[in-house]
Computed example of a mutant assay.
Amino acid sequence: MTRILGISGSLRRESFNTSLLNAAAGLAPEGVEIDARTIHGVPLYDADVERVGIPEAVTALRDGLEAADGLLLVTPEYNNGMPGVFKNAIDWMSSGPAAALFKGKPVALIGASPGPFGTTQAQTNWLPVLRTLGMSPWFEGRLMVSRAREVIDDNGALSDARTREKLAEFVAGFAGAIARGKV
């Protein structure tokens, strides 16, 4: 079994990225499990809070990462960049000795946006962070869902067959690369 921790970097209840992550989990091939999570409950990073204790939401994400064979970041794009709340969650997850959880971990990026360019800039903005954490990015596939309102229905389901096919191929490719040690 290949386990992938998937994290949606959006706080919005009807998030396109959470919908994309849930679709990815549903399209995972046999032998692959995507543990779909959000960043809800992660407070703004504050070393004073950290000294008192790690917030439960952060501990849960760290535990999920520790148990996973790979990490799937599902990133929105705000103002041509990564969302601050998502970066904040990764900062919490990687603070102190927990940074070792990221070292060498395979990671892939996907994202959905209502705009015409998908999440090109946000995905690019993540690369220095992933490099700093010592992660192993998977570059064999790329998925940026543009015009998300047209492919995700009012119930949050990924309704576009072509996008579902691309997402299934992406998930299978990433999971296969993890299983083969090719990331």
Rank of each mutant, 00 (worst) to 15 (best):
L20C: 05
L21H: 12
N22F: 00
A24E: 07
A24I: 05
A24S: 10
A25N: 13
A25Y: 11
A25R: 14
A25E: 13
G26Q: 13
G26V: 11
L27H: 06
A28C: 15
P29Y: 12
P29A: 08
E30F: 00
E30H: 07
E30Q: 07
G31Y: 04
I34G: 00
D35E: 05
R37H: 09
I39L: 00
I39N: 05
G41T: 04
G41W: 06
V42R: 12
D46H: 12
A47T: 14
D48F: 10
V49M: 14
G53F: 09
G53T: 10
G53C: 08
G53N: 08
P55C: 15
E56M: 05
A57F: 08
A57N: 11
V58G: 11
T59V: 00
T59H: 00
A60T: 04
L61W: 02
R62V: 03
G64W: 01
E66V: 03
E66W: 00
D69K: 06
V74I: 09
T75M: 02
E77D: 11
E77K: 01
Y78L: 07
Y78E: 13
N79S: 14
N80E: 15
N80Q: 15
G81V: 06
P83M: 13
P83Y: 13
G84H: 07
V85K: 11
F86S: 10
F86A: 06
K87L: 04
A89H: 05
A89W: 01
I90N: 09
